[in-house]
Design a protein around this nucleic acid. Sequence first.
DNA 1: GCTTACAGGCTTGTATACAAGTTTGTCGCC
DNA 2: GGCGACAAACTTGTATACAAGCCTGTAAGC
Lengths: 255, 255
Amino acid sequence: MNPATANIEEAILSAILAGRINPGTRLGEQKLADLFGVSRTRVREAMMRLETRGVVQVSARRGWYVVEPSAEEAREAFQTRRVIETGLLHALREVPPQVLKSLKEHVAMERDAIGAGDVHSRACLLGDFHIHLADALGNRMLTEIIRDLTARTTLISMLYQPTEKAEESSHDHEDIVAAMEAGDLALAARLMDEHIGKVEAGLDLTAKPDPLAGLRALLSPAAFAGNAPSVPHTHDHPQDHSHPHSHGHPATKED
Amino acid sequence: MNPATANIEEAILSAILAGRINPGTRLGEQKLADLFGVSRTRVREAMMRLETRGVVQVSARRGWYVVEPSAEEAREAFQTRRVIETGLLHALREVPPQVLKSLKEHVAMERDAIGAGDVHSRACLLGDFHIHLADALGNRMLTEIIRDLTARTTLISMLYQPTEKAEESSHDHEDIVAAMEAGDLALAARLMDEHIGKVEAGLDLTAKPDPLAGLRALLSPAAFAGNAPSVPHTHDHPQDHSHPHSHGHPATKED
DNA sequence: GCTTACAGGCTTGTATACAAGTTTGTCGCC
DNA sequence: GGCGACAAACTTGTATACAAGCCTGTAAGC
């Protein structure tokens, strides 16, 4: 592959993993071309590659956008991660000491970042843990898959995560590594399953499907089918689903 | 995505899955463009997408080639499949009757194709089983991943599989479905693990890394380590390592 | 005869020009 | 003042032209 193209691809992907690009961000071809000092052709290449990897999308003649996974896609992504990562731990017969050491160091770094309140690297490290774990098998294919998947879940967290429970996540990671060290990989797999479940449960999948949600809620909090409002207001309105007839009722501006 | 591009991509991928395109096949841009009635631009798009999916590769200014996975990559691919597919079965709490029915029908089709000696559709169906299984979870992401993976293992089988044990594979599938029907998903996962292991064990990973292998063995059965020269150019001596001074000297010609 | 050098053809790599569509800003009309 | 139509700017979509490299066939030199 062309190195320049690979660079662009990698730069954008790692920026997403690091939480430095928000979901929904527009990525103009010309802008990126100028930024990287290449022609649009290359940028398009990189974008199309990223599209097949599921991290950007093109909107015809409007531009490339970082994906904003729907609630459904979010569920799929977490389920996929659960399948793969527990499967990985089950497949692992023994953990090489070197890997164990590396993972322990990683968890230590997580704790440090949390202690220091370094929000930026914190999120990055929490996602990176899973990628490091995939390295344990030494399987590049699997690592790549998990990397792409982690990018998506990172974006999902940005969209749907009301409160970040970094300490808890890091603690989970610690427990998983401990189980691995004890050689109890079945336990590690179970813990991983629970961990991913917890992260998923911590999401508010009823909220923020689009940037207009908050605005829309402000204007008419009543009954817009499908997408729920999501400003800091309380939203968990058990909401009788979708009144097709009564659209646009700006009446109740409750709480 | 552009529909035309998607078509090309899909056409090539499914042709690979069906075993109708051999590993190492050259896919010329212009030729494909003519075939599909589009311009090279579109073909390049499709090719680059397929490259990120791991089924084709580009050789600079020579053309696009269907990948010929190395022994190492073959091992990785099977390991990845094992991780994902057993993980999938473990994650499956219960099997919807509809899915079970569909899988049973699929296995029946496998048996029919084997009985009829239809080599062509046989291989296709055997790979398709796993894709169908992924559908069981109703997770498109996972299905896509397994599809790409299956494409690779199909190519691997074409390269390294000395004898195809279609009956055995189909039998394994049958047992897996039976375990699923009995609700014993842990057993199904174990059977799947063994099944993939058997298929992998049935490969001859020491052979056929390239089409010249046979030829090379014929000419010098002794010990060629690296790549063979396509022209009769004198090269590295495997015995005494590389004489840096004697370059371009056609002295020893017994190789 | 064997090797090497070279030229021609063929294929991909890359940039650019233009086409087509979207968004936004502005003006005129009611 | 509000609404709608129009126009201009901007963005991607697509094709094409040309550059650059690889492979092969041929001929000259040792």
